[in-house]
C-alpha cells in the first residue's frame, strides 16, 4: 500500500560553503546525507559543502549568508505507506533497506534526477526540478497502479 500526494508548497534554499548560518536558524549541522530539523525548518546535507533548507515559511537568514533561493524551481510528491520502497524500486537503483528515516540524497528515478528524503518509517519526500515533475509523477503513478493490482 502506498499513496502518492503532491508536495505542499515549500520554501527551499541552497546554502554553500560555510554552514554557520544554520546555527542562526536553530539548526544543527547534520552529517552528510542526513537531515536535521528545528521545528518546521529542515536542513538536508546533500554534499560536503551543500545544505538544502526547506521550510513552509521563509526562515530568517542572517545577513551575508551565501544562500540562494530555489523554491519555485522544485516540485515533487510525498509517498506514504509501507510499500513506498517497492514503488521507488521501479526507478531508483539504490538499496533502500539501507536508507533509514532521516536519510537523504540526490539520486535517480528512471530518467529524472531526484532528491530523495525519508522523513519517516513510511513517509518519503521525492522532489525534482519543476519541469521534470510531471514526468516523475506520471511514471510513479503508472508504476503504483501495477503494484496495487
Amino acid at each position: 500500500m502506498v499513496e502518492i500526494v503532491p508536495l505542499p508548497p515549500l520554501r527551499r534554499y541552497v546554502l554553500r560553503g560555510d554552514p554557520a548560518p544554520l546555527g542562526a536558524l536553530g539548526l544543527k549541522v547534520p552529517p552528510l546525507l542526513q537531515a536535521a530539523a528545528a521545528g518546521a525548518v529542515h536542513v538536508l546535507a546533500l554534499g560536503p559543502d551543500e545544505w538544502w533548507v526547506m521550510a513552509e515559511a521563509p526562515p530568517a537568514w542572517p545577513g551575508g549568508a551565501w544562500v540562494t533561493e530555489v523554491s519555485a524551481g522544485r516540485a515533487g510528491v510525498s509517498l506514504a505507506g509501507p510499500d513506498a520502497p517497492l514503488l521507488l524500486a521501479e526507478g531508483c537503483p539504490l538499496d533502500l533497506t539501507h536508507f533509514p528515516a532521516g536519510a537523504c540524497t540526490r539520486t535517480l528515478f528512471g530518467k529524472v534526477e531526484i532528491l530523495l528524503w525519508r522523513r519517516g518509517e513510511a513517509l518519503w519526500h521525492v522532489e525534482t526540478a519543476r519541469s521534470f515533475a510531471p514526468h516523475l509523477a506520471a511514471h510513479l503513478a503508472e508504476a503504483r497502479a501495477d503494484l496495487l493490482a
Binding site: R16, G17, E50, S71, R74, R130
Partner: peptide, 13 residues
C-alpha cells in the same frame, strides 16, 4: 576559491 554555484534555471520564470 570560496565561490559556489547553484542552478536557478527553473526557479526563475
Amino acid at each position: 576559491l570560496r565561490a559556489w554555484l547553484t542552478s536557478t534555471t527553473e526557479h526563475w520564470g
